[in-house]
Each structure stands twice: as structure tokens, then as C-alpha cells.
Write a protein that binds this DNA or RNA. Sequence first.
DNA 1: AATTTGGTCAACCGCCACCTA
DNA 2: ATAGGTGGCGGTTGACCAAAT
Length: 269
Amino acid sequence: MVRAPCCEKMGLKKGPWTPEEDQILISYIQSNGHGNWRALPKLAGLLRCGKSCRLRWTNYLRPDIKRGNFTREEEDSIIQLHEMLGNRWSAIAARLPGRTDNEIKNVWHTHLKKRLKNYQPPQSSKRHSKNKDSKAPCTSQIALKSSNNFSNIKEDGPGLGLGSGPNSPQLSSSEMSTVTADSLAVTMGISNSNDQMDSSENFIPEIDESFWTDDLSTSGGEELQVQFPFHDMKQEDVEMDVGAKLEDDMDFWYNVFIKSGDLLELPEF
DNA sequence: AATTTGGTCAACCGCCACCTA
DNA sequence: ATAGGTGGCGGTTGACCAAAT
């Protein structure tokens, strides 16, 4: 298939938008809507390609866009959502009213990655050596703070919302599809089995797309254990949260038990 | 004061999925 | 079934600015 040319035509302007162009675009969309982005610039009298117009509108001119710095709460939400969704910026943006995927992506790369990087576990911690790869997710404190939320976030389509991101629960997709429980009983625990984390660099298993399922009902009484790693937390924080002293050879995971047949309340977005 | 370095963010690029004929 | 058109997405770039040297 031959790709349609975009912005290749000579005479189409590129680069920053001027206030005049903005005004033209706003006026046109306000009175005509944006039925066809490709046709829009010509109809509106703009020397831009449709793609550029759409981007400008969705990322900057849309009336419902919230300008200004991100609050701490918003940043926390982004971290948490990124933990679950990975680099799916549009999915993250859909959960943050008034924020665009581009904006969130920028904030992630400029602020939040740094913020998380600074969150180093103590050198003496055993898990530290296991997590030498900086690419490994390091936002497990979010799971600690809000493990209940993990079970209640709805994906684009119906599903458990336990996340297909890099730090997703340890479930095979086949297991997951049968455990579309209606509710979660979230418990917390510590595992001291070293086989939770193998010695490979990326010990968090990947979950493929089939992880997500439309099947929200299930019968049977099986109980499935889902584990959230929080290997980057400071040991003392984990101990405080758990309310117990941790042994040196313990790995740091939350155990979440899903009981099928119960009711899972999904938030509305 | 001039230059370099680093951070920020708007915009672009290329790919992909979906829809329609 | 296939080609072409379109919108959407994520990665990347580059202009701009402020701080550091």
C-alpha cells in the first residue's frame, strides 16, 4: 500500500503555529467541526497539512485542555498508570482529564523518569543486586500505596485492568482469561522464595495482548495469586507498610488473591 | 560578557489499525 | 480479498530558554 503523502506538498507550512493560524483553526472547528482533518486546512484556509491541524487542536487548542504544571497528584497518577499500561500515553491521558498524551509523554521523560531514578533502594539490600538493570520498572511503591487500585482500573476494553505493562502481575495470559473475577480480595504478603525473580536481566514477565479479555464473568472457585513486585522500595518502607521486619533473603512482592465468582467494580472513565 | 550545557516542550515523522469501496 | 484513505499513536527532533562555566 502506498502511503498518502502528508506535508510533502510544497507550500505547506511547518513548524510553530502562529496566533493567527490558531485563531483560524479554532474559528473553523467551532463553526464547522472537524469532520475530515485532511480536508480541513483547505476548507479553513490554512497552509498546513491535516495532520498538523489535528495535532495542534488535540494537543493545544482544544477548549478542555488543562494548562499549567502537573500537580503532585497528577504525577503520581501518571507513575501509577505507567506502571500498569507502559508507554501507552493515550491510554494514560484518557484517565487524566484535560491532559494530552503528548504532554504526559513530555512530563514522563523530563520529570518523572528522573524522579523514579532517584528513588534508589539501599545499597545493602539484596534485591538491589537483582535489579541492576535500570530498565526494570522502579515504581513499585505505587503498587504498595494503592494495590487496591490495581484491581479496579479498567482498560480500554473491558478487562481486569491488572495491567500489561512491564511490571504486570505474574500471570500467563491463559490463566488470566479464566480469572476475570468480579472482585478481588487483595491481601498483602511477603514471599521469601528466590524463584520469584530469576537471574535474568528482565525478570518481569511479559504479558501479551490476549491478557485482556472481554470475559468478565467466571464460575468456579479457584483462587489465583497475582504478585506485584516492589523490589525498588526501600526496605524500611516495606517493613513499615507490612508491619514486620523483613529477612535478608526475602523478596519483595505483594500477593493479590483473585477469587472468581465475586464482583469486580470497574471505574467509569 | 560570551559560550556551553542541559531542560523543556511543541511539533514532526513513520508506522499501524481501521474503514470503505 | 485487496487497495487506498484516514486518524491515531509513540518515538524523536529541534528550537528556545535558563543556568552553569
